[in-house]
């Protein structure tokens, strides 16, 4: 069984338990700190704020006191589309973003991107961010920048990479130790690691030994905008029906029925 999977391509993905997520924002900062994400004095215009991981606040739109809130962390979905044709990868004119068949990770090559922003137009999750400004760190603060992730220059697009540099470092280490594969805990994203509520699980969706493999099959699992055929690799679970429904768009008559998610899966 194990042997079989060593040869199968990996498909890294996440399962985020929205029942556990508290909206504390630790994942957002864990991501910024890991990936040298810049910041500016005013970040309150969320349409200009680079947050690879962004926590959305959902409400059930019911009046007081029936109101409910659910937080939804949104990293890059690393969409597979059909056969790796994620919405963004297929549109990039300069092959600056790529779908890795080996890991299922959608990469972004900062030095090749020339900033046409077509990928941003293509992404329905708003997971892609443009560097409208030069990244500037206050004097002295550039000391904490990590050499594993290059700071991005102005005029290009960036996004969540599932901390791909961690994968590379883990693979390097495994290689030195003469191993071919990685253990589940050897490669974890920064947000997964930081979440104080333990809401995020990360691993190889193709590997039955990884926790995500089982979690994604939960009857409460759903993905965002599955109906568009983006085939994302980030799953969410919620015990609340309205939250699961908020994951996609439904016509009025569909909404009343129990939604059969498998219908929209490819």
């Amino acid at each position: 069984m194990k042997k079989e999977h060593e040869h199968k391509a990996k498909k890294y993905g996440m399962v985020i338990d929205l029942d556990k997520c508290t909206g504390c924002g630790a994942c957002m900062v864990a991501c910024m700190a890991e990936n040298n994400v810049p910041f500016r004095a005013d970040e309150t215009d969320k349409l200009l704020s680079i947050t690879w991981m962004r926590v959305y606040k959902l409400t059930n739109a019911m009046p007081f006191p029936k109101t409910e809130i659910c937080y939804l962390p949104r990293p890059c979905m690393h969409c597979e589309g059909s056969h790796g044709h994620s919405p963004c990868v297929s549109v990039c004119p300069a092959t600056a973003t790529d779908y890795s068949e080996a890991t299922g990770i959608v990469s972004q090559i900062y030095t090749r991107c020339f900033g046409c922003r077509y990928c941003m137009a293509a992404c329905p999750y708003h997971a892609r961010y443009f560097n409208w400004w030069d990244p500037v760190w206050p004097e002295g603060m550039e000391k904490y920048l990590s050499p594993n992730v290059s700071p991005r220059m102005r005029g290009i697009v960036e996004k969540c990479s599932f901390c791909f540099h961690r994968y590379q470092l883990a693979m390097e280490k495994a290689h030195y130790e003469g191993r071919h594969g990685l253990e589940e805990d050897e490669y974890q994203t920064s947000c997964t690691q930081a979440c104080p509520a333990g809401a995020i699980t990360f691993g190889d969706l193709n590997n039955p030994h990884h926790a995500v493999y089982k979690l994604k099959k939960s009857e409460n699992a759903f993905r965002l905008l599955e109906r568009l055929g983006t085939n994302p690799k980030v799953y969410y679970t919620s015990s609340r029906k309205w939250v699961r429904q908020a994951g996609d768009n439904y016509l009025r008559d569909e909404k009343d029925n129990v939604i059969d998610k498998s219908k929209f899966r490819n």
């Binding site: 004119p93 090749r112 900033g115 005029g155 697009v157």
Partner: peptide, 20 residues
């Protein structure tokens, strides 16, 4: 484009799948 000096990458690193 955000990086006009790299504009020619569209020809050099062309992605044939892209409409652009």
């Amino acid at each position: 484009i955000g990086q006009p000096l790299r504009g020619w990458f569209i020809f050099w690193h062309a992605n044939v799948h892209s409409m652009l």
